[in-house]
Design a protein around this nucleic acid. Structure first.
Lengths: 203, 203
DNA sequence: GTCCTTCCCTAACAAGTGTTTGGTAGGTTA
DNA sequence: TAACCTACCAAACACTTGTTAGGGAAGGAC
């Protein structure tokens, strides 16, 4: 009774990565639901059925794309958090790191932004919810530390501030294009300047 | 040769409005493509085919939802712009007006945010592109006036600032729920405070 | 009563969906 | 040469999709 053999997930999946990249591109551009496996196959220069040699399902492609992105994101975030910088420096580092991730995983970030809300309800995507909780905890505690240390304003609702900073950073993925006018670091610098000091002239 | 009669679009469409509201709700929650006409019909307590007594197609529902929203949005925006306030007061009024629209058209705004990018390519949704141009012009000129009048900082990229303010405001629709902790005006006030003066303590 | 309009249902349609099955060309190994 | 593995194709599958055609119940107009 020979079980069907699939290519090793753990082994070096050169072609697999290629296909995931093109899939991510199409998902980001057209939306997950509007993307048919035939469109993905078209972009990859093959037929729809051939994708199933590499992947179990369309959904498993999406899962792998998001997992890969979040794994790398948390690599960066954890490094920042373990450095135990001051609140303001932590915020600056987190924002900068976020823009670097947008630079590296533009498509995955766009997909995450658009689809995560509907995906978290599904069992196979619970890891999205876990990531969100961890994310919120990291940011909220940084903001609260800053308020306690009197480097961030205390007259603002912290949760509102959190959503403000979070959204401000990540929506950039919807218009950011690598190789554009500004580098990720330059955008991070200006964003930080706006978030920290505002856009009004100081009087 | 009797042409098929559809209910008058111009006449008072009480039921029509109801159906559009529920459709908008489902579109916003599940995404346009993931929403089937059967789901909409379910939420409205009827069968899928019955929707076609009121509407030509699923797409025409979406169009009417977005058109209605944008019409009301520009009613508010035009009123603000015609008042010819100073740049800072204009920005404050535009932001406040935006949050009021989010309060009134939460579902439509969420749909707009998620789908407009893919819709503008279609002929029947060109009005989205026109609105976007008008929108960008209104905001950019306000920001530029502010820089010239030295009420907004001149060391920031104006286009970046534009996207910053724009996104900052509209993504709120993704988490805002009417009847929550803060009113639309209260959120607008705090957002404006952050955008204008930043979240850092002034030293 | 009859007629007409409004609003919905029943039942089906064709097109498109994700997925499966069996096959096969080409390279590698024995 | 023979056996085998990789990566794909060809063709179909069951199901869901948006949409349509015909019918009928309720109620007001005449």
């Amino acid at each position: 009774m020979p079980t069907k053999k699939k290519p090793q997930v753990t082994a070096a999946p050169a072609r697999r990565r290629e296909l995931l990249d093109t899939a991510a591109e199409v998902f980001a551009e057209q939306g997950y639901n509007a993307t048919t496996v035939r469109k993905i196959a078209d972009h990859a220069g093959m037929l729809a059925g051939s994708l199933y040699y590499h992947f179990d399902s369309k959904e498993s492609m999406l899962e792998e794309i998001l997992r890969t992105f979040l794994d790398e994101l948390w690599d960066g975030y954890d490094t920042v958090l373990e450095a135990e910088l001051g609140p303001r420096e932590t915020l600056e580092a987190l924002v900068t790191e976020s823009f670097r991730e947008i630079d590296r995983h533009r498509a995955a970030v766009a997909i995450y932004q658009k689809e995560s809300k509907q995906l978290v309800a599904q069992d196979r995507f619970v890891f999205l919810a876990e990531s969100q909780r961890k994310f919120e905890k990291a940011w909220l505690s940084t903001l609260e530390r800053g308020v306690a240390a009197e480097v961030f304003r205390s007259d603002l609702d912290v949760r509102l501030t959190y959503r403000f900073v979070r959204d401000t950073v990540w929506v950039a993925a919807s218009w950011y294009r690598p190789g554009g006018h500004h580098s990720a670091e330059e955008i991070a610098r200006q964003y930080l300047s706006m978030v920290l000091d505002g856009i009004a002239v100081r009087t």
